[in-house]
Write a protein that binds this DNA or RNA. Sequence first.
DNA 1: AATGTTTCTGTCCATCGGTCCAATATCAAT
DNA 2: ATTGATATTGGACCGATGGACAGAAACATT
Lengths: 207, 207
Amino acid sequence: MVHFFVCHGRDEIPRWRMAFPESSWVGPTQAMEQVGRGDMAWVMSNLDGWETLVRDLADRGAILVVLSYTPDPAQASLALIAGARGYAHALSPATLLRQVALVTTNQGIWVLPELLTSVVGGTFKALGGRARMQGDVLGALTERERTVAVAVAEGRTNKEVARELDITERTVKAHLGAIFRKLGIRDRMQLVLRLSQQEVDIADPSH
Amino acid sequence: MVHFFVCHGRDEIPRWRMAFPESSWVGPTQAMEQVGRGDMAWVMSNLDGWETLVRDLADRGAILVVLSYTPDPAQASLALIAGARGYAHALSPATLLRQVALVTTNQGIWVLPELLTSVVGGTFKALGGRARMQGDVLGALTERERTVAVAVAEGRTNKEVARELDITERTVKAHLGAIFRKLGIRDRMQLVLRLSQQEVDIADPSH
DNA sequence: AATGTTTCTGTCCATCGGTCCAATATCAAT
DNA sequence: ATTGATATTGGACCGATGGACAGAAACATT
């Protein structure tokens, strides 16, 4: 595996060389030419169009890590979305860089521990809209109601759920009624959206 | 470092033993007593209160990986939020388990590659982007059908969609009929599930 | 014993949702 | 000019859904 550090010409950082003595220093253009499947590319986030570069290189099977002088959660997310498997500080010590390489070459994801909460939290909010969904959303329900809620949210009809739980369809409806009331939603659609963690805009009689 | 597999008493899976011959099998209660800083704990997601368990063990400095028989993106997010560093299929082969251990002990995060897109995709939406993986699904539809499909998948009723697009409810139904036929689904529920990427390809039993 | 929660069941009814049978108008391509 | 795809609407039919009543049985708490 070949390591490529993609950066501006003058951005040579000794510890990079220290971490991977055999690595190549290239600009964005050369990176597009030389990086191939299985190679590892470390891309500086101060490059114009780094996201596109990351995406392209990731598409062709390279392992991407984005390095930043000013790491922040939003940029970390962008990097991961673009296909990067890692996001670290550009001035990380050599040992850390080697650790990142180890993790990413083994299908792992590596982001700065300090940013981890934010990144995952972002995902969390994206998936749930409000804080701590399933726990709280389903938490308000009884055991049986939870079971019904999940079954319905997986796309089953009342009749199917009834058969599955060995109760009458009427009872399923009763549970659903309670679920809708407790969650403040109007129908099973809203339930699916809640549980599949999408943002829902409920009840707007205005339009 | 000691490996703990936290599961129901009878859930013994040979390949776990194969991956880490020295590991201990424990229930949730014993886990709380025995797992300490630097230890590695593999927690089954079919345990009641696994989230709390993961949170507690992670808080005391253990490395947590959640194993599930039915992996899905939402659960993966929950696991990571709870403090887990890994999320994998319970029937993963020994070599994969060792890889996961390697990654997570090096501050990395490991989630099923199939789920990665969904998890990161969620982040993407959190940042205000528009999901466009749906393009594949919606690609078979006409422009108008796409509009209707998205509106319905956002939880609106036929009547609401009709008002919104300034057409009759009858026309909405016509479009929906075409949508169901083209996508090979039976009702709007399946449409939501399709567009929110709910159904997850469970790993085949071979690995 | 009284109370409250949970689970389960019933009937009635209005509405919604999905499919069958159509038909008409527009537009692009042949 | 004919064909094909698209968008639109109509009517009728029937199953699915959700709410509004209501009641019974099991169980835990007080």
